[in-house]
Simulated scan of single mutants.
Amino acid sequence: MMEFFANNGSALITAIGEHIFLSLIALALGILVAVPLGILLSQFPKTADIVIGIASVLQTVPTLALLALMVPILGVGKIPSIVALFIYSLLPILRNAYLGMSGVDPTLVDAAKGMGMSTGQVIRKVQLPLAIPVIMAGIRLSAVYVVAWTTIAAYIGGGGLGEFIFNGLQTYRQDLIFGGTIPVIIIAIVMDLTAGYLEKRFSPKTSSSEVETDYA
């Protein structure tokens, strides 16, 4: 183990940094696009079925195939890797944002409208706070997926820990395989725990009756 770090420590640290960078950028883009889109689609259920259906189809495309499709368009490197990972990050966040918003008790929505709130106010002050746990669950799932999928980015020069794994497979070196796999697992666990903490941190702590009082 010490010999492995002595020979590959610098490259491993660089790969870990690249892996985290690719994962966070793709996830951040997914959140910025999917959460507002899911909130918007909650107001148009028929359109939501079509959009989520398209996202589901994209999700079925194998990761390696999608990365290969990026090459003729964007070339190789980090940019096509981020775009492909961003596309994969969308579905869990989009679906949960839509379900979270749509799943808010209709009586709360009706009560808020009865108090004179506009549609925008109902979304911001009633539906969105109550949908946060479901939305965060989608982000949490997407975060773990993206960390795992980022290993494939090495196939098109995206960097990351996938380089260790694939080099190890090609040269039959278990130390390189474990050296790439173990950090990926650790990063995924850290991302999951962090997202779980944020989920609890931003989830409303009030009961339904208290929520109605607060929004009054």
Score class of each variant (00 low, 15 high):
Gly196Val: 00
Ser42Ile: 13
Ser102Tyr: 11
Gly162Leu: 10
His19Met: 09
Ile182His: 04
Lys125Gln: 14
Asp49Trp: 15
Gly120Lys: 08
Ser81Trp: 07
Leu91Ala: 11
Val104Arg: 04
Gln43Met: 13
Ala15Tyr: 03
Met191Ala: 05
Ile13Leu: 11
Val104Ser: 02
Tyr98Thr: 05
Gly160Ile: 10
Thr213Phe: 01
Ala6Asp: 14
Val61Cys: 00
Ala143Pro: 02
Pro204Ile: 13
Leu94Glu: 10
Ala97Tyr: 04
Val211Asp: 07
Glu212Arg: 01
Val184Thr: 14
Gly196Cys: 01
Leu64Val: 09
Gly17Trp: 05
Thr119Asn: 12
Asn7Phe: 06
Thr119Tyr: 11
Gly179His: 12
Ala26Gly: 09
Thr150Ser: 10
Ile20Arg: 04
Ser209Ile: 05
Thr63His: 08
Ile182Ala: 04
Ile152Ala: 14
Ile79Trp: 14
Gly77Lys: 00
Ile182Glu: 04
Leu128Gly: 10
Val134Gln: 02
Met70Val: 01
Ala65Cys: 10
Gly196Trp: 03
Thr151Pro: 04
Asp49His: 15
Gly9Leu: 04
Ile182Thr: 07
Thr14Val: 13
Leu91Ile: 09
His19Gly: 00
Arg95Gly: 02
Arg201Asp: 12
Ile16Pro: 01
Ile182Gly: 05
Ala143Gln: 07
Ala154Glu: 02
Met101Pro: 03
Phe4Ala: 03
Ala148His: 08
Ala195Tyr: 04
Tyr155Ser: 15
Leu69Asp: 07
Gln121Ser: 13
Thr150Gly: 03
Phe86Val: 02
Leu90Phe: 12
Thr63Phe: 09
Ser209Lys: 06
Ala26Pro: 14
Gly179Val: 12
Tyr88Glu: 07
Gln43Phe: 13
Leu169Pro: 10
Val211Phe: 12
Ser23Asn: 15
Leu193Arg: 09
Asp110Pro: 07
Phe166Arg: 01
Ile189Asp: 06
Ala137Gln: 04
Ile31Gly: 08
Met70Gly: 00
Ala143Lys: 07
